[in-house]
Computed example of a mutant assay.
Amino acid sequence: MNRDRTVLVVGGGAAGNAVTILLRRAGIAVDLIEAKDDWNATRGSGITLQGNALRVLRELGVWKQVEASGYGFGSVGITAPDGTVLHVQDDLRTGGDDLPATVGMQRPRLQQILIDAVRASGASVRLGTTAETFDQDADGVSVRFSDGTEGRYDLVVAADGLGSATRAAIGITTEPEPTGMAIWRVATPRPAGVTRTDLAYGGPAYIAGYCPTGEDSIYAYVVEGNRDRAAIPPDTYADEMRRLTRHYGGHWPEITAHITDAARVNYTWFDRMLVEGSWHRGRVVLAGDAAHCCPPTLAQGAALSMEDALVLAELLTSSGTWDDALFQAYHERRITRVRPVVEASVQIGQWQLDGVRDADVPGLMARTMTLLRERP
């Protein structure tokens, strides 16, 4: 029966790529469209993948490539702004004891691994293409594309990110909201001795941190209050990030010396969003950042997106009937897991914005990560 079904996946990020791979494995025909011509294969600096993300990547069949391409570690250090290590905490292995607690890797490399897996799955892929209209009836969805073509599908998975046009097109009015923080990110060479994530709280920024992404690379980041993006010319990004990082000690002077190319520095506001109620309208279902997003204070954005894909694919491939009850079951399984992570991620940042000195950040993080040890 699966071989007669067709699915359109809108968006080729973590959620869209993952659900495509899993549905194709079950013999379901999948068309994937992605608005960007380059499939986002060269964008971004680094990504922190905790165990629950690695568990999904293993289900996708790409764990060995991820393991070989990234840098695994099992602890996080807390430092003073001058670089003095104050505390080292072992990370919880949220993916199980047979996987590392955390893997850092270059984001473009992870995207390329997923792209290769999508291509190998036999899915039909069209880049530089968007879905313009969705005309639904009881049996399926007729879609008109930006190139003038049309298609008919049993289901549409909207995985087109935070600013999802599909979400708006099906009448869900929820929009992302800024949390008041922003992050500067850059990829640099890895200083000798950097073997885990270290986080410095205080100084001219709320957080200054870095994560190893390979034998020779890291990505470094600085979190501050958000500023008017229009007032920060992109050609000054390196100068702006150096202005913050030069106040930090330890490995930071070496990192700062490599922040020279404005084109390699990314500046992004933190947003929060959680679609309340069902994540579907008819036969169009939201997944990943189209349904929820949170600040990266718990490094769970991509993990939650890939978990959405895993749960949705499991339900679709195990049921003979694709209906409201199935789509609601998907929402109910995900909301109880996603909501605490979104709320905790936002709360950690809000405590910093409010200057709460006695906040139980370690306790909140431990409770949330313990929840994520359970399978989604």
Rank of each mutant, 00 (worst) to 15 (best):
D271P: 00
T102C: 09
V85M: 08
R357C: 07
W322G: 06
E175R: 15
G27E: 12
T166F: 05
T42H: 15
R264S: 14
D160H: 01
W279Y: 08
V19S: 14
G122W: 09
G104R: 05
P362Y: 13
Y237W: 05
R25F: 08
A35P: 02
A200L: 02
R357G: 12
V265M: 03
D97C: 00
V141G: 03
S45D: 12
V62I: 13
Q352S: 15
W322D: 05
T197F: 00
A231H: 02
P362E: 14
Q350K: 15
R3W: 14
D90Q: 14
M306F: 08
T149K: 09
E224M: 05
T368H: 07
A366G: 13
N2Q: 14
S217C: 00
R25G: 09
R109N: 05
G225Y: 01
Y330N: 04
I28K: 12
P100R: 08
T20L: 08
R190M: 06
R5Y: 11
G349N: 09
A290N: 06
G320F: 02
E240K: 09
V143A: 08
A15N: 14
A344G: 09
G12F: 15
C294M: 15
C293V: 14
A231I: 03
D37T: 15
T133G: 01
Y153K: 06
P189N: 08
L60V: 04
V9L: 14
A359P: 13
L304Y: 04
D289P: 11
A262V: 02
T336H: 12
V356Q: 15
A302Q: 04
K36E: 15
D147N: 11
